[in-house]
């Protein structure tokens, strides 16, 4: 029981602190790569605090959907964070890969409906673009997680961080699945080359376009959520890599996850600065790679299993 409590405490701390810290590291790295001094690493915390102290302007055109959506999607993402072993420790609540994909979709649905509820052209555009992309991303995510599940012989997500066979050398199953999720994560967390997170151009936005009407505390929630999503997804990718390296001890896994997540954040910053945003029509091509990776990972896992 006490081990469960310790695990719970660590995961809670990470849920509260890590997402914004990672965003801070990402922005600081990106600034350095753009040859600028850039904001402090803790800047996202200041931003968060400022937003919580602000009042909110809510357009009269909007209904309860718009107002309630941030809380709803936050709930979905918090459950996601509690069922996924993204910190390197087993998740406090046991869940399987279908639940994982469902929760992501639920959060997306909440923000999409809220965007439609605003009645603005940009909200509609963003919702339509995001749902079009999600259709392409979901199969990749399901198959990549399935590859891990087949390989470990267990459908629960927790199996990913407690490798039953712990053989290492997974004959490319784990690296391929990790790569597929990395590509899917670029869409899920709106990063380059899918979407330019620094852009101010509403017409090119996908995920961001849905949030343009939020202000004050709700905006703080919305921004925290995208950070949380990034943290969970990068943590999950780390589990695949750690499994490949056959690392078993809890301490090594937690610190390894932390290190890998930061490495991925730095990689995301490099991509932000040096990649060119893909044309909207080229995005399916990129996601096809993800699908191919996860399919091959599944096949290899099935052959090995």
């Amino acid at each position: 029981m006490s081990i469960y409590l310790v695990r719970m405490a660590i995961v809670t701390c990470e849920i509260v602190l890590l997402p914004l810290l990672l965003i801070g590291i990402l922005r600081a790295t990106r600034s350095r790569l753009q040859k600028r001094k850039g904001p402090r690493i803790f800047q996202p915390f200041y931003d968060f605090m400022r937003l919580t102290r602000k009042s909110a302007v809510v357009s009269e055109e909007t209904g309860p959907l718009f107002r309630g959506a941030p809380a709803a999607s936050l709930a979905a993402l918090l459950i996601l964070a509690l069922v996924t072993p993204w910190s390197g420790l087993a998740a406090p609540i046991s869940g399987d890969l279908v639940l994982f994909v469902f929760l992501l979709a639920a959060a997306r649905m909440a923000s999409g409906l809220a965007a439609l509820d605003t009645g603005t052209a940009f909200g509609g555009l963003g919702a339509s673009r995001e749902s079009a992309l999600s259709i392409l991303v979901e199969p990749t995510l399901v198959l990549a997680l399935a590859a891990g599940a087949i390989y470990e012989g267990n459908l629960t997500l927790n199996a990913l961080c407690q490798p039953a066979n712990g053989r290492g050398g997974s004959a490319y199953v784990m690296p391929l699945a990790a790569a597929a999720i990395w590509l899917a994560a670029a869409v899920e967390t709106s990063r380059m080359p899918v979407e330019d997170p620094t852009t101010h151009l509403e017409l090119t936005m996908i995920h961001e376009a849905q949030m343009l009407e939020y202000s004050g505390p709700r905006l703080a929630l919305v921004e925290y959520q995208s950070a949380l999503k990034l943290t969970v997804l990068y943590g999950l990718i780390s589990q695949f890599i750690l499994n490949e390296m056959a690392i078993k001890s809890s301490i090594a896994r937690v610190s390894g996850t932390f290190g890998l997540t930061i490495a991925m954040v730095v990689a995301a910053a490099v991509m932000d600065v040096f990649l060119v945003r893909l044309h909207w029509r080229k995005l399916p091509d990129l996601l096809t790679f993800g699908l191919a990776f996860s399919l091959v990972a599944c096949l290899l896992a099935a052959l090995r299993g």
Binding site: R30, L33, Q34, K35, R36, M192, P193, D196, T198, T199, L201, T204, D272, V273, F274, L275, V276, R277
Partner: peptide, 15 residues
């Protein structure tokens, strides 16, 4: 550069 999301380019030209 900024409009195609190429941060390195917009930074270099800006300088």
């Amino acid at each position: 550069c900024a409009d195609i999301g190429f941060g390195a380019g917009s930074s270099a030209f800006g300088v």
